[in-house]
């Protein structure tokens, strides 16, 4: 072990400059994670301090039908991920064209919903999905389809959430994928063209493999966003009818801040964290394997 020589003034300034950021992150992110883990093993409510009960919360969770219902709903919401990815890939490959003069304009328009509050977006879409006077059923009516009770039926209630989510997010994914495509050197395509490769072949043999890094990023981001879905559900359906569209985060929120079972809610949150963590690790490993081959 070689001894490192630190410059005293640099060390001092270093700690001094990171201090504000680090103390905020430590107090409001790191310490809470510790507490969250601890709470998940306790019986804790606003009305009494936490006391340790071991794995009771988790046992109770696994036996809780409502919990399984929200887990199932949340997994169902994942359908939006591949659909959104497909739309974004399609649009990005259309936009990746230097001869297309209007490309920046399209890009800017697609991106608009990404920056808007989910609650505002939901407010607009709840009106679009109105069973009698909404835009959606108007259009379906033109195709001869009978009005669908989007927000008020057990069978349909998850679909508006997925559609709105895709509409809100595809612009963001498109931009990430487009940036990835523009990073692929033009010479690769030139060489392929000389070898007589056609557009489709180039897309599957060159664009897709070289884009895998960006595709993994987009997938991770959308899977995580999908697991954390809350705002859209709250505003569109409130989780109903019944519990047919309630999400995991909504379950956590209601347990913690409506019925004040904070230990129980922490256990659900801890499970969500573990799942998200595993998903990120698995997808990172996949992307490493892809880039290393």
């Amino acid at each position: 072990m070689g001894k490192k020589k630190w410059k005293k003034s640099e060390v001092m300034w270093g700690y001094f400059l990171i201090a504000p950021a680090i103390s905020i992150i430590a107090i409001f992110a790191l310490v809470p994670v510790g507490y969250a883990i601890y709470y998940s093993f306790t019986d804790y409510s606003l009305f009494h301090p936490p006391y340790f009960i071991g794995l009771e919360n988790f046992k109770e969770l696994f036996a809780d039908e409502d919990f399984w219902q929200v887990v199932k709903n949340t997994l169902f919401y994942l359908i939006g991920v591949p659909v959104g990815l497909f739309v974004a890939l399609f649009l990005a490959s259309l936009l990746n064209d230097r001869t297309l003069k209007l490309a920046p304009l399209y890009r800017s328009i697609y991106f608009v919903p990404v920056i808007l509050p989910m609650i505002s977006i939901g407010a607009v879409w709840i009106w679009i999905f109105n069973v009698k006077y909404g835009l959606m059923n108007h259009f379906l009516g033109l195709l001869g389809i009978k009005p669908i009770p989007w927000l008020t039926s057990y069978e349909w209630s998850k679909i508006p959430v997925i559609i709105t989510g895709i509409w809100q997010g595809f612009g963001g994914s498109t931009i990430i994928l487009l940036a990835g495509m523009q990073n692929i050197p033009g010479e690769v395509y030139e060489a392929a063209k000389l070898d007589g490769a056609g557009g489709m072949k180039m897309f599957f043999r060159i664009t897709l493999p070289l884009l895998s890094q960006s595709i993994v990023v987009v997938t991770i981001m959308s899977v995580i966003a999908s697991f954390q879905i809350f705002d859209l559900v709250m505003v569109l359906t409130g989780g109903g009818p019944g519990r047919s569209s309630a999400s995991i985060v909504q379950f956590i929120y209601e347990k913690a801040f409506r019925s004040f079972e904070m230990g129980y809610a922490s256990a659900a949150a801890a499970l969500l964290f573990v799942v998200i963590f595993i998903v990120s690790i698995v997808q990172l490993k996949i992307s490493q394997r892809i880039t290393n081959y």
Partner: peptide, 20 residues
Amino acid sequence: IVLGTLMIPGQVTLIPLYSI
């Protein structure tokens, strides 16, 4: 460690944050 905190979903810290 700072980078690692990027992985923490906000809902996990919400309850302890409330007590803080």
